[in-house]
Design a protein around this nucleic acid. Sequence first.
DNA 1: ATAATCATTGAAAGCGCTCCCCTTTGCGCG
DNA 2: CGCGCAAAGGGGAGCGCTTTCAATGATTAT
Lengths: 340, 340
Amino acid sequence: MKATIYDVAKEAGVSIATVSLVINGKGKISEERREEIRQIIMRMGYKPSMIASALTGKKTYALGLLVPDISNPFFAEIARAVEDEGQRHGYSVFICSTDNKDEKVEHYAALLQQKNVDGIIIGTGLKELSVLKPLLQGGVPVALLAREFPSVVVPSVVVDDYAGGAAAAEHLISLGHRHLAVLAEQDSISSSRERVRGFKHTAEAAGITLDPAFVLSSGIKEGKNKAQELLQRDDRPTAIFCCNDMLAIGALRAAKELGLRIPQDCSIVGFDDTVLASVTDPPLTTIAQPIEQMGQTAVQLLIRQIGQPGEQPERIVLTPSLSIRQSSMALRRYPEQSIS
Amino acid sequence: MKATIYDVAKEAGVSIATVSLVINGKGKISEERREEIRQIIMRMGYKPSMIASALTGKKTYALGLLVPDISNPFFAEIARAVEDEGQRHGYSVFICSTDNKDEKVEHYAALLQQKNVDGIIIGTGLKELSVLKPLLQGGVPVALLAREFPSVVVPSVVVDDYAGGAAAAEHLISLGHRHLAVLAEQDSISSSRERVRGFKHTAEAAGITLDPAFVLSSGIKEGKNKAQELLQRDDRPTAIFCCNDMLAIGALRAAKELGLRIPQDCSIVGFDDTVLASVTDPPLTTIAQPIEQMGQTAVQLLIRQIGQPGEQPERIVLTPSLSIRQSSMALRRYPEQSIS
DNA sequence: ATAATCATTGAAAGCGCTCCCCTTTGCGCG
DNA sequence: CGCGCAAAGGGGAGCGCTTTCAATGATTAT
């Protein structure tokens, strides 16, 4: 059986209180005793049970991370950053893939609460804001990552999605494109909405109006089909802005299936700049999110919230940056006939 | 404050034992009382603390997943499968990225043990096998995923790496390649060794000897450089087998930087078939691992081990399959001069 | 030398829950 | 009418640890 604090105490001929104090480096214990007990702990291979210490009203040193899908590279990279930063502060993290389904969010939220996690990072969208209520009522510290729910006051890290969308538009417009399309995520996802808004406004400011028929929403699965819809039109756009890299990849595939060349026949700009963007064919021009920093910051905000529950929640805005690769190019002013 | 079982008991006018029994659906309680207490639990929003119930000698319903890097798509996909299958059985999972460093493995192993996880899935390599000892001695159920340590008897899921390597060789040889090279992972990783072995043997059986100078080991970071080494030789290989897709991508990049065309100037075969393989330029011919099944099986084995600690550990071998895309092609028998 | 002061350490009360085992109550039966 | 028994529910002892508070002996001031 595993050694307990009692075993150590008996072995050392002291009370468990003393052992506890030594472990936590507290109290007034003579240095000799301290060292002696440390030796014994080492020798017995004793490791205090975090379960028991958690029960004593202390913390569990566990965090929950809610994301849509850990197998999506963007969230996998986020997870890594969260894990590392958590680790740095002594926290372990539970991963929870919600598939953006409220039921799953609800399920995981309740579960994490039962597991008494010290805090939860929410990096997943939710249709019904009410799923968060039990958490907030339960007093579980929460930090929002790349998501926002205006009516909820909790710390959050976001990237300036509007600016990102705008940057995409600027890039495309500067390349001469005027016939633009957008492939967005579901409308319920605020970051996507913002990206589209930034894109749209910037286009409008340049005198370009986006035909609603050229602004499609879709999940990752149907992304390719939606892109194909766009690409098959007679008045096919000369550039498509995709609200994430997965969608952009769908577009790339759609183009390939239709025999269209990217970027010659259509420029494509993605969003995220995960590992995927650099390995596609062609490599994706995309709006880069500072993923690592996002994860780190979220953990920091959360931990601060855990420490000072009352404190005014902070809202940190990170700035995305344009990463130009080969899926976008200047519009040819005088399109030649296809040579085939 | 959060409601406890006492609050519920008081509210219902029964003892906490009764409430506990109702929660766990045990004992002899009249159906009316049962229902009544359920109502109260619901009404009060009471959720039993898993910490407390874990302390009472029960399970924590938490698993640990040790992988080299959760941001690596292969492991991210594994993680998703593990998470889902775990969830299906009521378990949550802690992610632990070890970067293949023994110290981190050790650190996480100890941590998970302190957190009293019910079991650990080890999907990371280790140089020193001894880091596992504390776990096994501590009686923590363990399952190995895509790794093997012959001297340790624990359940494990592996794919037949040897067969995978062989399949890669067969493919390449059938395309007429005879001048082969291999980009392997560190030698400490047994799966990589097996892949190389399968590849080598198959090549030899076809009368092809691999010059050791054409078998390079490298981490993902230096993969590109190693590939460049290979590709810059005067007697450049006509095909490279890379022990994972990341390495293959490194090779793809190296080729591009050197102005070499893939697959015309050199065929490349990867291993894993993560999402990456399908989005590269060109899409990767690769040996596909049944990732989802691997994750699921690992969880199942682990859970079985948790249930019957004494039971003879099972070893399940899954079979990889060749997934042909565009990074490999038949060797041109009479190489033309480069046109440029 | 004696009381007062400190540094050390131990005893014990929980934390919220599970589970063994005992008490109470209600019945059927001789 | 008394007995045994089953059913229903309560009591209470932990699980391993933290922490408060008091007790102990040592130390120092008077």
